[in-house]
């Protein structure tokens, strides 16, 4: 066990001498996907309930597709599926993009979390009290100013509890990355297992790492909720 830790602590935490692996890769995957997903979700959540149907239906189709199918299939499609199309391989920009396993993985993860975040934010927007919006309108807020200064901040705050679930879910989903050859914590655990045959210890170490990250995230979100949801009196 001690030898296992001595040999594998570096790959588990940040690198195997070659590329980013283990904890560092997992954190990078999680934060990058969440970041891109959130940026994607901000405009989409507004469009989702827009009165204009040419805005509404593409967004609803997008969330329907990405929330109705498993992330594993989405990853497989983006990693093996798309690159198997000759047209993709021939186009230089697309080829360079989809050739890299990390790009495919981040794309799949970002789109998936984007779909879920869109729905979460859209739900929070719908839950906003009508009175606040009317009051804002009467004060002269209109169009995108209304959204940027009033609706989106409020929606972001209200969705904090549900978004914390999404963040944890994304963290757990990064374990699928190894199927696209991206070396995250689980891949290093499998390597350690294959080399030393100490199954429980290798996977146990990985489980411990994930538990620590999860606790840290949950703690952070509790602090965030205490700060930003105080007005809703979410008793903690």
């Amino acid at each position: 066990m001690i030898e296992l830790i001595q040999t594998y602590w570096r790959p588990f935490i940040y690198s195997d001498g070659d590329q980013l692996t283990g904890l560092a890769m997992t954190l990078w995957l999680t934060s990058a996907s969440l970041c891109f997903g959130l940026i994607l979700a901000l405009p989409l959540s507004i469009a989702r309930d827009s009165p204009r149907c040419w805005l509404r239906w593409p967004v609803r189709t997008f969330t329907y597709l990405f929330r109705g199918t498993p992330l594993y299939i989405q990853l497989l499609i983006f990693y093996t599926g798309i690159y198997s199309i000759a047209a993709v391989r021939e186009q230089p920009v697309l080829d360079a993009f989809f050739r890299e396993a990390l790009n495919c993985t981040l794309l799949a993860f970002a789109l998936n979390t984007g779909a879920y975040t869109t729905e979460i934010l859209a739900g929070a927007i719908r839950a906003m009290p009508r009175g606040e919006i009317e009051a804002a309108r009467s004060l002269g807020f209109d169009g995108w100013k209304l959204y940027v200064h009033l609706i989106l901040p409020s929606a972001l705050r209200r969705s904090l509890p549900y978004y914390s679930n999404e963040v944890i879910f994304m963290l757990h989903s990064t374990t699928l990355a190894f199927t696209a050859t991206v070396p995250d914590i689980l891949k290093v655990a499998r390597d350690a297992n294959a080399a030393t045959f100490l199954t429980f210890q290798s996977f146990g170490l990985a489980a411990l790492l994930y538990l620590c990250i999860t606790f840290a995230l949950v703690g952070l979100f509790r602090l965030a909720e205490r700060r930003w949801l105080r007005f809703l009196d979410v008793g903690r």
Binding site: Y83, R99, T181
Partner: peptide, 11 residues
């Protein structure tokens, strides 16, 4: 099989 798939794909 995945090794061959990526070999054929060019990765």
């Amino acid at each position: 099989e995945q090794v061959y798939a990526d070999l054929v794909a060019g990765r």
